[in-house]
Design a protein around this nucleic acid. Sequence first.
DNA 1: GATAGAATAGATAGATCGCTCTAGCTGGTA
DNA 2: TACCAGCTAGAGCGATCTATCTATTCTATC
Lengths: 208, 208
Amino acid sequence: MGPNLKPGNTKARILDASAELFMRYGYTGTGLKQIVADANAPFGSLYHHFPGGKQELGVEVIHRSGAMYLELVTAVFDAAPDIVNGVRDCFVGAAEVLRATDYADACPIETVALEVASTNEPLRQATAEVFESWIGGATERFRAAGIDDGTARELSISLIALLEGAFVLCRAARTTEALDAAGKTAATAVETALRGAPTRASTPIPRP
Amino acid sequence: MGPNLKPGNTKARILDASAELFMRYGYTGTGLKQIVADANAPFGSLYHHFPGGKQELGVEVIHRSGAMYLELVTAVFDAAPDIVNGVRDCFVGAAEVLRATDYADACPIETVALEVASTNEPLRQATAEVFESWIGGATERFRAAGIDDGTARELSISLIALLEGAFVLCRAARTTEALDAAGKTAATAVETALRGAPTRASTPIPRP
DNA sequence: GATAGAATAGATAGATCGCTCTAGCTGGTA
DNA sequence: TACCAGCTAGAGCGATCTATCTATTCTATC
């Protein structure tokens, strides 16, 4: 169909290399020379496939990595016997990946999101869209389990925040302790929400 | 006492400017030229006060900012009537600061922590020490409220993870929704831990 | 084959990076 | 006054950054 039957996988290699480098070293911490070197691609090809330069490449990588991570987490949930175990498996799996990569591979867009939040509006918007897609996906899943809409969204945001925050602590400490603790808290939060889901709202709690 | 009566506050100005720039734009995203410009300091003074260059400056800023943030949070807790309200006030206060600074000022070391985790060992260690000091401070406070040591530490890690993760989501979305949701989850988690504290462990939960 | 367009290939520009270097200034001591 | 540290002050170095530029190679269609 297209004019070139063998389009060459140069663009895909550039995207893959960029995704890994951005995840590990951040956006400003990754140079274009290093990207084309890791991708085994000539420098000219980068600006051929991404005329908008580093920023266009960054936007595409953020959306791509965000979609892939959503698929990964979705698969983990689908393989679990119930939602609570699905949440647990996500944190356990994240910890395994972190250890296996010498605490390099955590969230694919977290570092970039913080770096560009106050400096690069198109990139900031891309990270916001990815996070919103994750929140929406999780909310839908919790809603399907009988949790009301508002609680499901709050719960989803909290679980993602627990995961992202644990990533920061784990990478800094070179330990998976934070993911273990956050995973427990996340599972408990889901259980609490489920318990109050089909019946009534949770009972009021006396002040200590 | 010292040889110079009027030592000049140049070093302090450099530290203050660096702290703000690192918090907003990250470590690699902040240039030394910009630091001395913001600090109204000559370039030579930077290397006079920090012979180790950008890395030494970074380590000092991380420790300084980490200690200041710990004091700030401690003050919020001390002003609250109880621990649960202290936790709530922390998230509410963080959201206020975030809005007031156009979503620029969140955690003073989070962006740097992610950037340097896999690239700069001295800086990574500095961020790890700061996070550990925060965890230790919170753990001690929860332990004093009657929560057993292990639970107190897990709870502390989870609350800090919730805060850091919410910072990422809020700065990306330019909304404080994530801090609101995470604050609710954090308060609930503390209540749950307190309820199981003086009596027995929490009752087992049936699978949904 | 001839040809056009896509993709590859890399040299190079202009700006900025962290950092070094040499002065000049200041204030206390001899 | 002479002196000496501590600090200020900024020019300038090599390296690296993003981006541009001109060729060359490949592939599909005429």
